[in-house]
Design a protein around this nucleic acid. Structure first.
Length: 585
RNA sequence: CGGGCUGUGGCGCAGUUUGGUAGCGCGCUUCGUUCGGGACGAAGAGGUCCCGGGUUCAAGUCCCGGCAGCCCGACCA
């Protein structure tokens, strides 16, 4: 099956450590910033060549090949077809889709000798869509799903965490083409299922989460997150049902508005000199942050010029910018920056309240309609107000869920308390629709002879990132702990010939065992080095192969080999003359 | 893009304050002793001290200018 497949770059089933291109590091590399990154370097799987660019050494290359093979098997099982697209891509293709500008400096750009523009592919929608458009033109051709496993390039603002955010990375990218949205939905679900199988086979603890809808609106999108403390994405999930979402897209059960009269004294202005900010005011007045009203100002691009909007949430909560953008779509929204505030002295930063005459529209989270008045800005420097009451002291034009979902908020589906975790995004599936087929002219003719743009899905998996995610999840103080499916070799054979008469015999027996294992189809890394037992054991722990077999003088005398399982540390003994059978048992 | 830190042998670091011809640990080579959890001794190999310019009799060290890397931040009033 997967192991030793024809495409497996690591088809060599065995290796002597004396010959392996490997130098383990005893000291932690200075630049490694996560446990996983540190161990990948120490164990000699990767080496940094430039910022965010890594060489894959033989052991690392084998692991990468394992992941590739799993991805390939599961993709092929869905009927997807593998191909290879160019990494070097003409820039004019990207201009046609408008993504040349959209990607900006994130894309590596270069020129040929004729000064024609090229880029190093950060993804391949343009190339694949153009390719399919030139080959297929009938509804009879559809659907089709194509994929490749290829190196991708992004000139990240800040590469970090080794393979987790690198500038060169191995990605499986798939693209499906359909006549209609229903057909796309079917493939989308099949591939989502395949993704789950892939991550499970790789040994990851993962969760599929709803992702932020695309800027076009209506796009369906799911992210696959490997649960990890070093992850760069927060996601919300429900312990009681299957709801899970990226924090950007997360919703909570919308709270009820109070919607009644509020028994509060008249609004009064109070002096709060030199106290911009929720925390400072809260401390100064001795009221909880939740009693303050946070007022965020945004510029909204309107049809007749920019307008000003205010977004209101309780002081202890944060505004979800994406929710705000959704509420104001299709108009673009952005928060005011330093320059904006400098240009508008009528907006005293840090002392803004919802009753400012400059606001064209006021949006508020339902929790703002509370049974009490609020402390908020007085719209003049060094002043706040107390007992600001909805409808009486300020008006709200639109009630909409605006707060970023936080742990403990009620699940939108079942009402249970939501939890928040960090994750590494290892996969993403999109129903992208006609975003590329329209500008790139990928059309088909239906049975009535009419032309329609193809409906597309895009599906990505970070292959090299999976390696990083697996290592973050599977390691201990001693080193890596590979899940069997990804381990570069299945067995780590250590020979300890010792001194004296028996040494030669022990070594000969180990050589024979090595040969026997190879014949039995077991992939084995044989530590035949003339090194001390401590060195060999430490390296075996560091490399983290699932099973370590030790053949020493004492065991040899008794006709046994010791087995230790890396993950559990459990030891037992196997008869020297029946090792392959015992390993399979 | 802003702030901070760092560039010295394969890896980890000292030396820079106070300029004087480069050092430690690990790793590597050779020999000997050792041999079940990173052994010991002895002898070695290996360095454009990030790059360029300047000051100086003399620059890893001082000055100027670059480059690279790492960390933090880059909207929450």
């Amino acid at each position: 099956m997967g192991r030793g497949g024809a495409r497996d770059a690591g088809s060599l089933r065995l290796m002597r450590m004396s010959a392996l291109f490997l130098r383990t590091l005893r000291d932690d590399p200075a630049d490694a910033d996560t446990d996983g990154h540190r161990l990948l370097l120490r164990a000699g799987l990767i080496r940094r060549v430039a910022s965010g660019v890594y060489a894959w050494l033989p052991l690392g290359r084998r692991v990468l090949s394992r992941v590739e093979q799993i991805v390939r098997e599961e993709m092929d099982a869905t009927g997807a077809q593998e191909l290879t697209l160019p990494i070097l891509q003409p820039l004019d293709l990207w201009a046609r889709s408008g993504r040349d500008a959209a990607y900006g400096p994130l894309m590596f750009r270069l020129h040929d000798r004729k000064e024609a523009g090229f880029c190093l592919s950060p993804t391949a929608e343009e190339v694949i869509t153009t390719l399919v458009a030139s080959e297929y033109s009938s509804y009879r051709d559809l659907p089709v799903t194509l994929y490749q496993i290829n190196w991708k390039y992004r000139d990240e603002l800040r590469p970090r965490f080794g393979l987790l955010r690198s500038r060169e990375f191995l990605m499986k990218d798939a693209y499906s083409f359909h006549a209609d949205a229903e057909d796309l939905q079917r493939t989308y679900e099949e591939l989502s299922d395949a993704y789950g199988r892939i991550f499970t086979r790789c040994g990851l603890t993962w969760r599929a989460v709803e992702a932020q809808a695309g800027e076009m609106g209506g796009d369906t999108s799911q992210e696959f997150m490997a649960v990890a403390a070093v992850g760069e994405d927060d996601f919300v999930w429900c312990p009681s049902c299957d709801y899970a979402a990226n924090v950007e897209a997360a919703k909570r059960r919308s709270p009820d508005r109070h919607d009644g009269t509020v028994d509060a004294p008249a609004m009064t202005v109070i002096d709060t000199p030199g106290l911009p900010g929720i925390a400072a005011v809260s401390e100064h007045l001795g009221v909880p942050e939740s009693a303050l009203l946070k007022c965020i100002v945004v510029a909204i691009d309107g049809d007749d010029g920019p307008r000003l909007g205010a977004a209101l949430v309780p002081g202890d909560r944060e505004v979800n910018e994406f929710a705000l953008a959704r509420a104001l779509a299709p108009h673009a929204v952005r928060l005011l920056d330093d320059d904006d505030f400098a240009a508008r002295p009528e907006l005293p930063r840090g002392y803004l309240g919802p009753h400012h005459p400059a606001f064209d529209v006021v949006l508020a989270d339902p929790t703002v309609d509370a049974d009490h008045g609020w402390v908020t800005g007085a719209n003049e420097a060094d002043r706040h107000v107390r007992d600001a009451v909805v409808s009486r002291d300020f008006q709200v034009d639109q009630w909409v869920d605006l707060v970023s979902v936080a742990p403990g908020d009620p699940c939108p589906r079942c009402g249970s308390a939501l939890a928040v975790d960090r994750g590494i995004e290892v996969g993403h599936v999109f129903q992208i629709g006609t975003k590329y087929s329209e500008p790139l002219d990928a059309r088909y003719q239906d049975d009535a002879g009419d032309q329609h743009p193809m409906v597309m899905g895009c599906y990505g998996i970070g292959v090299s990132r999976i390696v990083a995610a697996v290592v973050e999840e599977h390691h201990d103080d001693g080193g890596l702990v590979w899940p069997a499916a990804l381990a570069p070799y299945g067995v780590h054979l250590v020979v300890l010939p010792g001194r004296g008469e028996s040494g030669e015999a022990v070594r000969a027996a180990a050589e024979q065992l090595y040969d026997t294992l190879q014949r039995a189809g077991i992939e084995v890394l044989y530590d035949d080095r003339d090194a001390s037992p401590g060195v060999k054991f430490a390296d075996a722990d560091l490399l983290g192969l699932p099973v370590r077999l030790t053949l020493g003088a004492k065991g040899f005398a008794r006709g046994i080999v010791e087995r230790r399982r890396r993950a559990t540390g459990v030891d037992d003994e196997l008869p020297l003359d029946g090792v392959p059978a015992a390993l399979r048992a």
